[in-house]
């Protein structure tokens, strides 16, 4: 994993079949960058479905979540429609896993991304990270604590 405190490396990936999203466009917001192995995991334990319920909790911290996997933009589109996701899923498809490699979370053995989280602050600095066992949804407690800590620290400094 990349170390805490450095600038999050910038990248651009397809977020829909005809639109790309560049990480630096999200500057000014906190970003939860959620790498995950593959679309279509079972609903009741699905990491993305959990984050999808958390809009108001992320908004409270001026944060948004962005999912990244090596699935194609067409798989993402179908997954988003099926699960009614309200946040982007980025397609790390060509060159395959390039962004996962950049963030040191690519698993060359499976050809998928590991299950890993980065919390990036408004100035694009990596503030928290977590590598989860691949089969286990890491939940949201770590993310919420990290977002809170960033905001609390800001209050102390101001």
């Amino acid at each position: 994993m990349l170390p805490i405190g450095i600038l999050a490396p910038d990248f651009e990936l397809f977020s829909t079949p005809d639109q790309k999203l560049r990480l630096s466009e999200l500057k000014g917001k906190k970003v939860v960058l959620a790498f995950y192995p593959a679309d279509w995991s079972p609903v009741c334990g699905d990491q993305m479905s959990l984050y999808n319920e958390m809009g108001k909790y992320f908004a409270r911290h001026n944060a948004m979540v962005v999912g990244v996997s090596v699935d194609s933009k067409w798989s993402h589109l179908a997954f988003i429609e099926d699960r009614h996701f309200h946040f982007p899923l980025l397609s790390d498809f060509e060159p395959k896993g390039e962004v996962a490699r950049l963030y040191q979370v690519y698993d060359a053995g499976t050809g998928e991304s590991k299950r890993a989280l980065y919390v990036i602050d408004e100035n694009s600095v990596i503030r928290w990270s977590y590598l989860s066992p691949v089969g286990i949804n890491p939940g949201a407690d770590g993310i919420l604590n990290a977002l809170e800590e960033i905001d609390n620290l800001k209050m102390v400094i101001q």
Binding site: C44, G45, Q47, L50, E53, M54, Y57, I136, N137, P138, G139, A140, D141, G142, L144
Partner: peptide, 13 residues
């Protein structure tokens, strides 16, 4: 209840 689950690391039902 839901928020308590988030805080407690609930990751599936």
């Amino acid at each position: 209840d839901f928020e308590s689950g988030l805080r407690s690391g609930v990751n599936r039902t």
